[in-house]
Each structure stands twice: as C-alpha cells, then as structure tokens.
C-alpha cells in the first residue's frame, strides 16, 4: 500500500511540475523518493527545530546591483 501511495505521489508531483521522464527515469525518481523520504521525515522529527527560524534572509530594501551593469 505504501509503495502504491509513494508511486502515486511521485507521479502526481512529476505531473504537477510538468516533467515527462522516460519509464526507466521515472523508476529512478521513484527509488530516489523512497531513499530521501526518511531523511525528510527526520528533519521534521528534530526536536531542536521545533521553534527554530529558517536560515533564510529577506531584506525589505536590498542592495542590489546587477552583474554586468
């Protein structure tokens, strides 16, 4: 059942992203998803992360100069 769910999830995400891998590549991505999924769940299970802010920075007034400008 879990495998079926994972397969459906991967197919749905690939479809939503607009990707059309060949069957062998889809199989690779399925395997990768199964490989990564425990790692993703482990991130949510880390107690220290419960109230942690992400390592993202957003500046309301960024100092930006385009490269090549």
């Amino acid at each position: 059942m879990a495998l079926t769910n994972e397969t459906a999830a991967v197919d749905a995400m690939l479809d939503a992203a607009g990707l059309s891998p060949a069957p062998a590549e889809r199989e690779q991505l399925l395997q990768m998803y199964a490989l990564f999924k425990p790692g993703v769940e482990a991130l949510y299970a880390l107690p220290e992360a419960r109230y942690e802010a992400p390592a993202l920075v957003f500046q309301a007034e960024p100092k930006l100069t385009a490269w090549g400008a």
Partner: peptide, 22 residues
C-alpha cells in the same frame, strides 16, 4: 528532476535544520 519531489515546507524545514546545526 528530484527537486520536483519536495514540497515548499520540506525546503523551509531544511533551512530550519541548517540553523539548528549552525
């Protein structure tokens, strides 16, 4: 292509873990 298989929340959670580790 595997980047299509993670959610926005997964990405943010990864950044929270990076901060924990720092």
């Amino acid at each position: 292509g595997a980047g299509a298989l993670f959610s926005g929340a997964d990405y943010v959670q990864a950044q929270r873990v990076r901060r924990v580790a720092q």
